[in-house]
Every structure is written in structure tokens, then in C-alpha cells.
Design a protein around this nucleic acid. Structure first.
Lengths: 175, 175
DNA sequence: CTTGAAATACTACTACG
DNA sequence: CGTAGTAGTATTTCAAG
């Protein structure tokens, strides 16, 4: 009996590849699984198994491992913004009055409550924050601007960039 | 027998509510379904049915209707950026040299091919485009910046805003 | 450590009231 | 919409690579 066991099948996802690209460290099958699930996760496990040429139980185990490892953060339904009556997207750059921890904390707490706010990030450069907000149309954005954004705590300036055309908007990671 | 059939149970999602907020036009059950599926769509239909207090077939019919109506654009697995080795997010403002249709088209075609590019939008204001790009770290972003972004066609100026902290990043619509 | 085959439990789905 | 029945799937067990 040999001291080191040689794996005859394809090695499935090294558990701890910390210093290299985790996605490229996955084997071909795991990448195929992720590619599919990022595109359409409503597929049944047997159909997925057939696509990646694996038995259903083996496929299911891989999917569960990808979830437990945290690589798959979740499986969610995406709502079409236009169909939801929020076809307008605005990117908003925010500059705060003062750069104190309290000022930042207060703003962040309030910003998350802005209806339609999808993203809010602290950034380097000429702005303190970038937010993205979805609204119905320019009228409703004007209302949001006048009634909410201008009243966010500690704001010195906000600059709005209306999105005229969404070229690309994806949650998918290339594999 | 009466000529018009009166629905004794809650009315399920008016098919054509064009002039009002489509999300608010949904009944309580459809909203509960969407709330759940936006959070976790890996739930089984029977479990979902129990949550919204409906029989399984009725629940399934509603979910299918929400998909066919286009309100649910798809069901996808979300990959955790940090776990995928792309923990760094950069927002990039782009100004083009010339504002011609060819210039825009050429840029858009190239921008979508930038590895890690998650979003790309035409905007009003001092920039022509905003892009968001995910990379591993500042080193890999520097490489991307020097080797790809600076060579995007027709670019006069690009300004990068490094994201220091992601306060909010959601795909969820409030219901 | 993995895989796949078989058996069971559960679920999706259909027909109908 | 709900109940009941059927078809198909998820999930466990287990033997084997």
C-alpha cells in the first residue's frame, strides 16, 4: 500500500487555496456548476448533473459544498427593475461636511433607509460615498432628491448622475 | 347563477396595472412570495407555500405567473466576491474623447470585455460612463488599470474611485 | 477523498372539484 | 383555490474506486 494516495478522479475544489485565485483553483466540474447556477439556478439537480456529466448525488454534494464554503453566497430571484416600476437608475456622489466617525456612521445608517437605494459605498477621491438608487422616473427621483437625499445627515454636496443606458449590469463572475 | 363571478378570496396580482407601481399592485401573498424568493430562492415550493399560507399548487402557479409576467427576471446563485478572490471594488468614471455614436459603440463593446467588469452605464453629467470593476487587490487593479482601462478606445480620461467599504449592495426590491 | 447505483422520502406537477 | 393522485426529484445509504 502506497504512502500517498493518488487521486484517480478529477480533484474537486481544494478546500483552502488562500494564496491563489479561488475560482481558478476549482476543477472543471465545479466551474461548470457555478457557470450554470450563476445563469439559471432554477434548474433541477438532475438536469444540472446531466449537464456537468455527473451523477445526481455527486452533483448535489458539490453544490452543497460550494454553498457551505461560502463561495455561493445564496440563491435569489432577481426582479426586473423596469417591470417593478423602477426603471430609472441614478448614481449619486456624496460629500460629507465633516470627516468624523460619527458623521460617517450617521450618514450610513440613514442612507440604507433611502427607498430604492441598491448600493452605498465609501470611496476614495473627490467623493465620500457613491450610492445607486432606483426610482420610477425623473419625477419620482426629483421627489426623492428634494425630500430625502438633501436631508441625509451631514451632507455637504450631492451630485447625481442619471443613468441613460445600462450597458452591462451583472452579478456573474467569469469562469 | 350570477353573471359576474365574485372572488371571495384575495385577488391575485392584477394582470395589467400599467399606470401604478406594479409592486404595490400585487396582493399580500405575491409580495410575500417575492420577499422570500429575493432573499432565498432555494426554498422548496411546499415550504414557500406554507410560509405564505397557501396550498402548494396555488403557490406554484403564482410563482410561475410572476416569472412569466417578467417581474421575476431569473433565479441565480450569487457568488461571494471576497471568497472568489475579487474582494476589491472600484468605481470608474470615464470621459470619452469625442461624443460620436461610433465612439460610444466602440467603447461599450470593449468595456464589456474588461475582466471583472460588473456594471457599465451611460450617465449624464461630467462623465460619459460609470463602470464598476471587481479585482483581487490594489496590485491587480493597477495592472488592470495600466494594461486595459487606459487602452479602452476613445478614452480621454478615467477617474477611479476605490471602494473602501461596501455599506450596502443588494439585488432586493423592498416590498 | 471521491464516485455512482439503488432505495426511500419528499416534492413538483396534473387533473379535477 | 384546494384535494387527491401520479410522476419525477432530492436525499440517504452503501459499496467501490
Amino acid at each position: 500500500m502506497s504512502a500517498t494516495k493518488i487521486r484517480t478522479t478529477e480533484k474537486p475544489a481544494p478546500a483552502s487555496a488562500v494564496n491563489t485565485d479561488p475560482l481558478q483553483a476549482l476543477d472543471r466540474i465545479d466551474r461548470a456548476i457555478l457557470r450554470q447556477l450563476q445563469t439559471d439556478a432554477s434548474i433541477s439537480n438532475v438536469a444540472l448533473a446531466a449537464k456537468v456529466k455527473l451523477s445526481a448525488p455527486a452533483c448535489l454534494r458539490r453544490v452543497e459544498r460550494l454553498k457551505e464554503s461560502g463561495l455561493i453566497r445564496g440563491v435569489v430571484a432577481l426582479i426586473d427593475p423596469k417591470a417593478a416600476g423602477a426603471g430609472m437608475l441614478v448614481i449619486i456622489g456624496v460629500v460629507l461636511d465633516r470627516s468624523t466617525p460619527e458623521s460617517f456612521a450617521e450618514f450610513e445608517k440613514a442612507a440604507q433607509k433611502v427607498p430604492g437605494c441598491m448600493e452605498c459605498h465609501v470611496v476614495t477621491g473627490e467623493f465620500d460615498y457613491f450610492m445607486t438608487v432606483r426610482t420610477r422616473d425623473s419625477d419620482s427621483f426629483n421627489r426623492l432628491h428634494a425630500e430625502q437625499l438633501l436631508y441625509l445627515p451631514g451632507v455637504r454636496q450631492i451630485r447625481s448622475f442619471m443613468v441613460l443606458k445600462e450597458i452591462l449590469s451583472t452579478t456573474r463572475f467569469p469562469l
